[in-house]
Design a protein around this nucleic acid. Structure first.
Length: 104
DNA sequence: TGAGTGACTGTAA
DNA sequence: CTTACAGCCACTC
């Protein structure tokens, strides 16, 4: 299988700058499948180590995938280490840290 | 081959 | 304002 979809997801996810975050929908739109936001999250389930999955959140800025990380608070700590404030499972000033991936 | 599922999103009530 | 529902695509069983 080509797995082109996954490759595109990873390619976009890798472009997320340090200290920035984006949403599944934004990535889905960037790869031309705006309605495949769920698939983006599914792709993250197989995320390679070189893909900063902790910078990918849902539209509300909530760490929906935090449970998929080894540590219960690993995702939050990674974000905080990049200068992003996290309250509980939600990012503070999400829009401020939001990064729009380039539409291909 | 068909039905079920998911790290989501947007609109409706 | 908050809560619910339906749509969506790709993948697994």
């Amino acid at each position: 299988m080509e797995q082109n979809f996954f490759q595109k997801v990873y390619e976009v996810a890798r472009q997320i700058p340090y200290g920035k975050v984006t949403s599944y929908g934004a990535i889905a739109r960037a790869i031309g499948s705006a309605r495949s936001a769920r698939m983006v999250g599914w792709a993250m389930n197989n995320c390679p180590d070189d893909v900063p999955a902790h910078r990918v959140l849902n539209r509300a800025g909530v760490l929906t995938g935090k449970m998929h990380f080894d540590g219960t608070n690993l995702m939050q700590q990674l974000l905080e280490s990049e200068g992003i404030e996290v309250s509980g499972n939600q990012v503070v000033d999400f829009k401020k840290h939001f990064w729009q991936p380039p539409i291909q």
